[in-house]
Nucleic acid binder design. Structure first.
Length: 243
DNA sequence: CCAGACGTTGTT
DNA sequence: GTCTGG
DNA sequence: CCAGACGTTGTT
DNA sequence: GTCTGG
């Protein structure tokens, strides 16, 4: 799955990488500065995502991580809807509709997975990133939600990361992984006029092994209180292990 | 028909 | 909103 | 995802 | 053990 990741690339670089034509991050003038760079993005944090706005701009926006569906009575469901299984997206009509209408890309410089080391031993965190060093494009869905009793409040924009089975690189670490979209399908994925869910579902597959590399990192990442580039330093004696 | 759920992870 | 269970 | 809390009473 | 908060 994907319960923690890194977002440290500056918005201006992301805007270029994802060919965004509008930056609306909030939290400051002129497009806003958005969430601070983080080496320990956790559920409920604000994250940067790429999505096409109602007026047709491919924009960089800020979304709360943890999908709050439109039917939710309160936003607490978002605390755990940080991932959505690709097969659930296919099966549940409400999520199919979201797949047809509200897709996004969540840029990540890499993500963490915890490997269960067996009874009595602590889980070992690993960092997974592109061998190229480029940001990964994680497949996501987004929603807007508003409390029924606070109709004059702002709409809450939230998002979730779609997961699938692990590829051969990830399988020894964990039984789920986020869907990583190759650049060749970014346009198709983000096109709001595209509602061909059968075609879109075909994109929700494990990424090729040779795209990624991984290595163990310090358990310092376990606590959301910890942050900084030191979190992605390989553990002593463990260089990156591509495939 | 209405009421209630609707999601994820792990189970070394 | 839409599906499932009773 | 992991870490940390998790309950009650009465309270000027 | 299970839920909430980050």
């Amino acid at each position: 799955m994907c319960g923690r990741f890194v977002s440290a690339t500056p918005p201006a670089v992301l805007a270029d990488t994802f060919r965004v034509d509008e930056v609306k991050l909030g939290g400051g003038g002129d497009g806003g500065t958005g969430p601070e760079p983080s080496y320990n993005v956790a559920p409920t944090d604000d994250v940067i995502a790429v999505a096409v706005s109602k007026d047709g701009h491919r924009q960089l926006g800020t979304f709360r991580w943890g999908l709050v569906p439109s039917w939710a009575k309160d936003m607490s469901i978002g605390n755990r809807m940080i991932n959505l299984r690709a097969d659930t997206v296919k099966d549940k009509p409400s999520f199919r509709k979201t797949l047809a209408r509200r897709r996004c890309i969540i840029p990540a410089d890499g993500f963490y997975e915890w490997k269960d080391m067996g009874k009595g031993r602590k889980k070992q965190p690993f960092f997974i990133r592109a061998r190229s060093g480029e940001p990964l494009a994680l497949a996501g869905l987004w929603e807007v939600w508003k409390d029924r009793e606070q109709q004059d409040a702002e709409w809450l924009k939230s998002c979730t990361i779609i997961t699938t089975e692990p590829n051969a690189l990830l399988a020894p670490i964990h039984d789920r992984m986020p869907v990583v979209l190759p650049p060749s399908v970014w346009d198709v994925w983000l096109d709001p006029a595209n509602d061909d869910v059968a075609e879109l579902e075909k994109l929700l597959v494990p990424s090729p092994e040779d795209l990624l590399e991984l290595y163990p990192v310090s358990a310092e990442v376990n606590s959301v209180q910890n942050n900084g580039a030191q979190l992605v330093i390989p553990l002593e004696g463990h260089e990156a292990e591509p495939d």
